[in-house]
């Protein structure tokens, strides 16, 4: 039992670490890509093809990893108002669990949609217009991000069932 929990914790830390690494890498890359763009145009009077394309495309990794990390942290944008009307913790727990379940279902759909899209893209050998890189490199984050959201929404759902509606975000639990 404790061994499997141990492994789960390791996987968890690995995934969170990976997301963070990708985010930081994309931001650093985009910054320097844009800097290079400005310098090359303004100082050296030359255009380097495909810098915009590269920055715009890799940014998809940033967005989806950010979204997945937001699900992990449980800091998605919410507009919930039920706690204003419902005072029973039991009922609130059911509502929260149902909300998390809906999120699981939607992100599952997103995952299958993304899978179909990527399959199609690979089949058609789609490439980016300027650099002619396989577009699938930049579509993959949609699939991975969606899948991670399934996992983290599912975990939120289980947490709510086990511990009630007031589950604090992971980031706070860690201190």
């Amino acid at each position: 039992m404790s061994a499997s929990v141990n492994i789960l914790n390791k996987v968890d830390r690995f995934l969170a670490g990976s997301m963070k690494t990708i985010i930081i890498a994309v931001i650093v890359m985009a910054t320097f890509t844009m800097f290079l763009q400005v310098i090359s145009r303004y100082v050296f009077q030359v255009a380097i093809s495909g810098l915009d394309e590269l920055a715009g495309h890799t940014a998809v990794w940033l967005y989806l990893m950010g979204a997945a990390y937001g699900t992990y942290e449980r800091t998605h944008i919410k507009a919930d108002m039920m706690h204003l009307f419902v005072k029973s913790p039991r009922v609130l727990q059911v509502i929260r669990a149902a909300a998390a379940a809906v999120s699981v279902v939607i992100s599952c759909y997103m995952t299958t949609w993304a899978f179909g899209y990527i399959k199609w893209s690979i089949l058609k050998h789609e490439v980016t217009p300027t650099l002619r890189l396989p577009t699938v490199i930049f579509q993959l984050p949609i699939l991975i991000g969606a899948f991670l959201m399934v996992v983290y929404f599912l975990r939120e759902f289980i947490d709510i069932l086990r511990r009630g509606p007031q589950v604090s975000p992971v980031s706070e639990q860690e201190g």
């Binding site: 145009r41 009077q45 030359v46 255009a47 093809s49 915009d52 715009g56 217009p129 300027t130």
Partner: peptide, 28 residues
Amino acid sequence: KGIKIRTTPIAAYECCWSKLGFTPSLIP
């Protein structure tokens, strides 16, 4: 010479405009 212009990000266009003496620039 020395005029910076925006071109469509397509290799053939960039090549053409620089052969015509302009400095092609890539902007969305």
